[in-house]
């Protein structure tokens, strides 16, 4: 077998010609995966649109149960984390090990803040009996306001969308912790930061999805 070691840096797998081909492949692969993600969420958005077109009044009513303030705070939190991920990539590109670590840490922190806020939102709703599926059991006051036979469906969609999105946030946190540990060992530099780059792409998509979820779920007046 031809020996490429002279021209092959350690991080380049044997089946790639060079570092750039590997980087571009990883990035393309991630984009193709994001196409998947978009259509995966697309199914939920489609269900949302179909039911909203059928029952517009339901959506106006039900959205009142969602707290716009905390939804907006979470939007800002996710935007912030997108910014820090972008900064993390920039740090890696500039060989700034410290900057990379700090930015990753802030991102993880913001992602956790997002989940905590989401947790309290869920908690509050479950408390009022606005629960998914067979647990649907709104308190009398709520039932008086949410006076629609299909109210359970709106919240079915709400819970599916936010839970699937939340799952993506959790996966993102796990990936970011892994990146952080590798960054501390000095695995990344301006020559090789592919994992940071593609995890970043993933994280931005999680943000993108939320950018649409927020007005669609919270901002119906």
């Amino acid at each position: 077998m031809a020996n490429h070691s002279a021209t092959h840096p350690k991080h380049v797998h044997h089946h790639f010609v060079d570092s750039n081909q590997q980087f571009e492949s990883a990035k393309l692969g991630m984009w193709v995966f994001l196409v998947n993600e978009i259509l995966f969420f697309g199914g939920l958005f489609c269900a949302y649109i179909v039911f909203r077109a059928w029952y517009p009044e339901l959506f106006t009513q039900a959205a009142l149960e969602l707290n716009t303030f905390w939804g907006a705070v979470n939007t800002v939190v996710l935007i912030g984390s997108s910014l820090t991920v972008a900064m993390a990539i920039r740090s890696a590109q500039n060989n700034q090990k410290r900057g990379l670590e700090i930015n990753l840490l802030i991102t993880i922190l913001l992602a956790c803040v997002f989940l905590v806020i989401k947790y309290f939102e869920y908690e509050h709703k479950l408390h009022l009996g606005i629960a998914p599926g067979s647990f649907w059991n709104p308190t009398p006051e709520i039932a008086a306001v949410l006076d629609h036979p299909k109210a359970n469906i709106f919240f079915g969609i709400y819970y599916m969308m936010t839970a699937v999105h939340g799952l993506h946030v959790i996966i993102g946190i796990a990936l970011m912790i892994w990146l952080y540990l590798r960054a501390r060992k000095g695995h990344f530099n301006s020559e090789y930061y592919t994992p940071v780059e593609i995890t970043g792409l993933y994280w931005h998509l999680v943000d993108l999805i939320w950018i649409f979820l927020f007005p669609l779920l919270y901002l119906i007046e």
């Binding site: 196409v35 998947n36 259509l39 995966f40 697309g42 269900a47 359970n152 469906i153 079915g156 599916m160």
Partner: peptide
């Protein structure tokens, strides 16, 4: 595969939730 399979995934997930939680969609 890339464009269609994710829709199957979400459909099947919703169906599972239909069975587990009676989500109702």
């Amino acid at each position: 595969q890339v464009l269609a399979t994710p829709v199957l995934a979400i459909t099947i997930l919703l169906l599972a939730m239909e069975n587990i939680l009676d989500i109702g969609i």
